[in-house]
């Protein structure tokens, strides 16, 4: 058994075990925490497979932000004393087991067949590698996201905005409900003064570096969102009912800049959504970073607006 095979097998077994722990039996809170651990180990798996971009996104967004959102929803459910549903009956488990085994078999057959069919070069990836050097962007993933499949990414940021609007509509107007810790903790001011600029600096670095090496708008926005969540929990950002113009602008700036850029280039005789240069890539990514970050923080806080709390 080689070293590489051992890594493959132990990661696979670890992930299956964690998924089992997250899904079957045990308390729900334990399941949620196991799900976050699952996401972190999946991030290690992405890194091991050779995709640091996916590893960063999975750890920050798939495990971190998603986990924080699920935990805060769990807390809100506890607060309204929602009725815990009863355990499923054995008959139902039996049927589910048969369906699940069949589903596993189907996916395994499809997956193994697709691996067996992996002969020769993947065509689209080949074209990407040939076209990438002309764009001035070194990171193939950023190249695909912003240049080659910009319509997908535009729709993606629109979906994020739509999901936010839908979530707000479902929850309706509400007053602040997160537990606010005492604001006069002695250390907090000093820590926040250091960590906020540090996190913003690293986010901008991630955005800038994402043009050439792994990184980019999504990873950077997750970092900013983490900072925002921390500030909300530390009582430095307060949920408000009123939505300030800045928050509204931040929510839509990603979609807005992308649309204006995509349409604007047509004035210069370029096709719709053509990207005129690397500066445009960074501009769009920066706008997307701001929008996604503020969306995630507002979803976590469960409020309409946010305002800073001075000392």
């Amino acid at each position: 058994m080689t070293w590489a095979l051992m890594m493959d097998v132990s990661l696979a077994i670890g992930l299956l075990f964690l998924a089992w722990q997250a899904l079957i039996g045990g308390s729900l809170l334990r399941g949620i925490i196991m799900f976050i651990v699952f996401g972190m180990v999946l991030a290690v798996a992405w890194a091991w497979l050779g995709s640091p971009d996916l590893a960063m996104a999975e750890a920050a967004i798939g495990a971190g932000v998603t986990g924080a959102l699920i935990l805060v929803a769990y807390w809100r459910l506890k607060r309204v004393n929602a009725v815990e549903p009863a355990d499923p009956s054995p008959l139902r488990s039996g049927v589910a087991l048969v369906v699940a085994v069949l589903g596993t078999g189907l996916v395994a057959a499809l997956g193994l067949a697709s691996v067996a069919a992996l002969e020769g070069e993947p065509v689209a990836g080949q074209l990407l590698n040939e076209a990438l050097p002309e764009t001035g962007i070194g990171n193939p993933i950023t190249g695909v996201l912003i240049i080659f499949r910009s319509l997908d990414t535009l729709l993606e940021i629109a979906v994020v905005l739509a999901a936010y609007v839908a979530a707000r509509a479902a929850l309706g107007k509400r007053q602040v409900d997160l537990p606010t810790p005492s604001r006069d903790a002695p250390l907090m001011t000093a820590l926040v003064t250091v960590i906020a600029p540090l996190a913003v600096l690293v986010a901008i670095y991630l955005l800038k570096a994402g043009g050439q090496i792994p990184g980019g708008a999504f990873q950077a926005s997750a970092l900013l969102a983490a900072l925002g969540v921390m500030l909300v929990l530390a009582g430095r950002l307060e949920s408000t009912l009123a939505v300030s113009l800045w928050v509204r602008l931040a929510l839509i700036v990603g979609t807005l800049v992308f649309c204006l850029m995509g349409l604007g280039v047509m004035l210069f005789g370029l096709p719709l959504l053509a990207i005129p240069g690397t500066w445009a890539v960074y501009l769009i990514e920066a706008a997307m970073m701001v929008s996604i970050a503020i969306t995630l923080v507002l979803l976590f806080a469960g409020s309409d607006g946010l305002k800073g709390v001075g000392r």
Binding site: L49, G50, S51, D53, L54, A57, E58, I61, G62, V65, T66, L69, I70, A73, R76, L77, P122, A124, G125, L128, N129, L132, P140, I141, G143, V144, L145, R149, D152, T153, E156, V159, V160, A162, A163, Y164, A166, A167, R168, A170, L171, G172, F218, I292, T295, L296, L299, G302
Partner: peptide, 30 residues
């Protein structure tokens, strides 16, 4: 190296998934 297009699609998927989860959670809480 891994195929860049597949990675970009999955990156898009991860972000869409968090948006969908957020909406679903809002529905559950409501």
């Amino acid at each position: 190296r891994l195929d860049g297009i597949a990675q970009a699609l999955v990156l898009t998927g991860i972000v869409i998934a968090v948006a969908a989860v957020a909406f679903a959670l809002a529905l559950v809480v409501a």
